[in-house]
Amino acid sequence: MNSELDSYFQETSRWSAELGLLRKILLGTELKEEVKWGQPCYTLNGANVIMLASFKDNCAISFLKGVLLKDPKMLLSKPGENSQTVRVIRFTNVQQIKEIKADLSAYIAEAISLEQTGIKVDRKPDSAPEIPDELNAKFAESAELEKAFLALTPGRQRAYCMFFAAAKQSKTRTARIDKYIPQILCGKGMNDCTCGLSKKMPACDGSHQLLKKKSEI
């Protein structure tokens, strides 16, 4: 058990009971509980295997190589239309977890076994992302921004475009773009470290939370 996550489980009041039960199940395995991107992450020999997350309408357990799981009970779903590897199981009450606890434990055991074999997911090459109109408008205003964006790896470009385009309203898409312009100009992806504290460079492992905690003391 990672004490740094105690506050996460306590403060996520809407799904605290559900996440607490999922946490208990995971802590009964050989996985190590860590903080990654500010979320509970369960690792094996340093490799990310499973994550827990809280959303507005549900909470979820995410299998990071879920596409490789057999899924005999048809419990897994894609977190997004374009997700190649991650598969999730979503919950809205404790009873749902209790009803499939045995199956869930079997899925977790299979995920651990897959990680132990060292098997990798065969990803499809990233296709060129469809750039939202709002981002193209920003490019028209700033050639520097366009140059910086096009210099990013295809995967980073795709992540940004998917995130921006996911907003239903144009003003929300524009707000999202404005928020990430400084990060794009610095050559950073959405999930890249910007504070320099991460031990998993260039990815962010949530170490910036230390800065937040220190500032609150």
Results as ranks from 00 to 15, higher is better:
165 A>R: 15
151 A>Y: 08
179 K>N: 11
1 M>D: 15
193 C>W: 01
97 I>H: 01
106 A>T: 07
123 R>I: 10
2 N>K: 00
170 S>E: 15
142 S>M: 04
56 K>H: 08
187 G>L: 04
31 L>N: 03
204 C>R: 02
57 D>P: 05
130 E>K: 14
93 N>Q: 09
61 I>Y: 00
165 A>M: 15
110 E>Q: 13
39 Q>V: 08
204 C>E: 07
43 T>M: 11
5 L>G: 04
51 M>Y: 08
209 Q>E: 09
52 L>W: 01
36 K>W: 11
174 T>L: 14
217 I>C: 11
165 A>N: 15
86 V>G: 06
12 T>L: 06
62 S>R: 09
59 C>Q: 01
20 G>R: 02
89 I>Y: 02
119 I>R: 14
3 S>M: 13
192 D>A: 04
81 E>Q: 11
201 M>L: 14
48 N>F: 05
179 K>M: 12
80 G>P: 05
47 A>M: 09
34 E>N: 07
178 D>N: 14
213 K>P: 05
125 P>A: 14
16 S>G: 05
16 S>H: 08
104 L>F: 00
183 Q>M: 11
164 F>L: 07
114 L>A: 06
114 L>Q: 05
179 K>H: 12
17 A>Y: 05
185 L>F: 00
21 L>I: 06
105 S>Y: 04
118 G>S: 12
70 K>P: 03
43 T>Y: 03
3 S>Y: 14
168 K>G: 11
163 F>C: 14
193 C>K: 02
149 F>V: 02
99 E>C: 04
112 I>C: 02
170 S>M: 13
203 A>W: 13
86 V>E: 12
206 G>T: 04
205 D>E: 09
116 Q>K: 15
159 A>R: 09
65 K>F: 06
161 C>N: 03
78 K>R: 12
110 E>D: 07
34 E>F: 04
57 D>A: 10
100 I>K: 07
197 L>S: 04
117 T>D: 09
212 K>C: 10
200 K>Y: 08
146 E>W: 05
214 K>M: 07
156 R>C: 13
109 A>Q: 13
88 V>E: 14
137 A>Y: 10
147 K>Q: 15
45 N>M: 06
197 L>V: 05
21 L>M: 11
162 M>P: 07
68 L>E: 12
216 E>C: 07
135 L>K: 00
195 C>L: 08
20 G>A: 02
158 R>H: 14
133 D>C: 07
118 G>P: 01
136 N>C: 10
164 F>V: 09
149 F>I: 02
91 F>M: 01
121 V>G: 10
95 Q>M: 14
157 Q>N: 08
76 L>V: 03
184 I>D: 04
212 K>D: 10
96 Q>E: 15
47 A>T: 10
84 Q>T: 07
159 A>Q: 13
186 C>H: 10
59 C>M: 02
133 D>K: 15
197 L>C: 03
64 L>P: 04
39 Q>M: 09
136 N>Y: 11
48 N>K: 04
185 L>N: 06
17 A>W: 03
186 C>T: 11
26 L>H: 03
37 W>K: 08
111 A>W: 01
166 A>M: 14
163 F>G: 14
29 T>V: 03
97 I>G: 00
33 E>R: 03
175 A>C: 09
128 A>R: 13
200 K>D: 10
119 I>G: 09
215 S>I: 07
59 C>T: 01
99 E>H: 06
